[in-house]
Design a protein around this nucleic acid. Sequence first.
DNA 1: TAATTTCATGCGAACGTTCGCATGAAATAG
DNA 2: CTATTTCATGCGAACGTTCGCATGAAATTA
Lengths: 349, 349
Amino acid sequence: MNRVTIKEVAARANVSYQTVSKVINHKVEVLPETEERIWAAVKELGYKPNYTARSLRSKRSYTIGYTWSPTPHGLTNPILDQFLQSMFHTAEQAGYYLLCFPFHEENERQLQVYSELIDTGRVDGFILSSIEYKDPRIAYLLDQKFPFVGFGRSDDDVVFPYIDVDGELGVYQSVKHLVEGGRKKIGALAWPEDSRVGNNRMAGFFLAMDEFGLPVNADLIARGSGNYEFGYQACDELLQLPSSLRPDAVVALNDYMAMGAMAAIQKQGLIPGKEIAVTGFDDNPIVQYLRPSLTTVQQPIWDIGQKVIEMLIYQLNEEKMPDPICSLIPPKLIIRQSSLPRSMKGGMA
Amino acid sequence: MNRVTIKEVAARANVSYQTVSKVINHKVEVLPETEERIWAAVKELGYKPNYTARSLRSKRSYTIGYTWSPTPHGLTNPILDQFLQSMFHTAEQAGYYLLCFPFHEENERQLQVYSELIDTGRVDGFILSSIEYKDPRIAYLLDQKFPFVGFGRSDDDVVFPYIDVDGELGVYQSVKHLVEGGRKKIGALAWPEDSRVGNNRMAGFFLAMDEFGLPVNADLIARGSGNYEFGYQACDELLQLPSSLRPDAVVALNDYMAMGAMAAIQKQGLIPGKEIAVTGFDDNPIVQYLRPSLTTVQQPIWDIGQKVIEMLIYQLNEEKMPDPICSLIPPKLIIRQSSLPRSMKGGMA
DNA sequence: TAATTTCATGCGAACGTTCGCATGAAATAG
DNA sequence: CTATTTCATGCGAACGTTCGCATGAAATTA
């Protein structure tokens, strides 16, 4: 339990301890002979530099702070595990670790934790997710000039480093795929209009509808909490519409709503992917097993976790903003059975 | 960005900085008047003690290390988010944060990371999960006398602090419930015999079968990787058995296998919960939405995360093992449609 | 009134590094 | 052969705390 210090290494290598420090940190060239002696001593004694002392002197904690909004009850976060693991791995390679702390819904309390971590010197930077419009954390960190990188965007006029999935493109691809399958009356299951992520994804819906010359019918767009129940209920209501209005496809902004929609369709004795196509978003592993399996949009989570950390570490090392300061990652449409093309007969009618 | 130090506080309060330290840490009694002056200065300057300096001197990092085995591809970990959040909250209340680091499958590399964190003084203790038989981390940490608490057990003869879900009780309850519903030929979908968690849960199966006087038929017990595909395939094979042998209920050791089993049953034109009952384990939020909804065993994850942290902090503060050194938490059987009682006619036959 | 105890606060040192400059020997130049 | 440069290493200080003991004044006791 008694730790080896740099002085013991120095004594064994017959140099001053400061020289050991410099050699270890590659701050100076010494005689090959000396260097060898030092490394030998390090190895023989099993010396590992004390993190705290190093951190105190160099004013770097080699620690990255992260918190995220907990999954609402009744859902699981399909990307959390992979996102965290990819960040841990990328950070470790650069000699960093992640400090995870609780998420507080209340803005003031939330900021308190961030400022605590900054003022006590526990972290060198933050990764932000669960970002919304007017996110107070972004204003605060920009004001403090404290390094951070977001997974996701905030308001368009706020400039900060982030990586985001191109949700617009993802939904655009979904709609395009549906149209190519002969679908014409396309509905959507979305979040409320104050959802940053939701609006981004819906932009792809509107763009595609416009591009393919399809009318957007406001009655076919339902907004609510993005869970299974809402998807079920909203889709059930769509199915009550007179057959002239009833959608032949439903784009859901996440997989849970899509699963709810599929259940509602099946309850009516219809088959998702036949009478009514359904698409989701996220590619929750479970959806490949549904009957029919769900067409959805997959986000390259591992890449995102990696990039987000790399961007932050760039900021820490170079002390300037990354260039480009932000980037969008294209997601991938995974086509399955829930969006089979409309039979030719129907498509030509 | 210039941080306030304890000396500035001292200057403003007209005392020595050491006195400020003592007052802040409640190490000494001073005149109420002086104390007031100090706290006022702290507040006015917004002083937050530098974590690194404090940590260097007091040899405590106020940090807890944690890593976990990443979810295999095609699955999501239904309890990860809640487990982490509950630990973060509990730790925060005691002034601790969690340091999360990557999981390495290879034993030696894995231990390297643990020893690195210990030797550099980055953490005061660990929480362990994904524990298996002969877990090298446990041997190592016990040998180093480094504080840790496990979520889960290892070999029976290894004594260390842990909290575990009573998987045996959970499966026992499942079987009991099935028997009470008139089921007699009960099969199981399990992990391989080298799975610590699996064997614990299966113990409940055997206990219940024995207690209710039902024969255990080895042909009705399938073992494999606990995913959807295995559940599907194994159950499909059970359904091929001649009707005299075919099970009227299947106990799966997790929800994914249960979902696979339900799909296999449905493929045969049968209804889970009618001809063949199915139960799972974990209460993945999704299973309440399946048709039929899945009977399963729910683990009180929030409580476990809390307890595990409390046990560790007890060790850190008291410098002795918690008493009792380990405890089992009873899980809760959630009864849904996949395990409806056999119709009386069938039950009496 | 002198000796002792109590109380409130101060002081020096230490935790284990990194940083910037100093130093002395060897090598090169004039 | 002296003056200068280069090279390898050493040295003192600092980072911002906490810790243990010292100190001096006030309060108590004899």
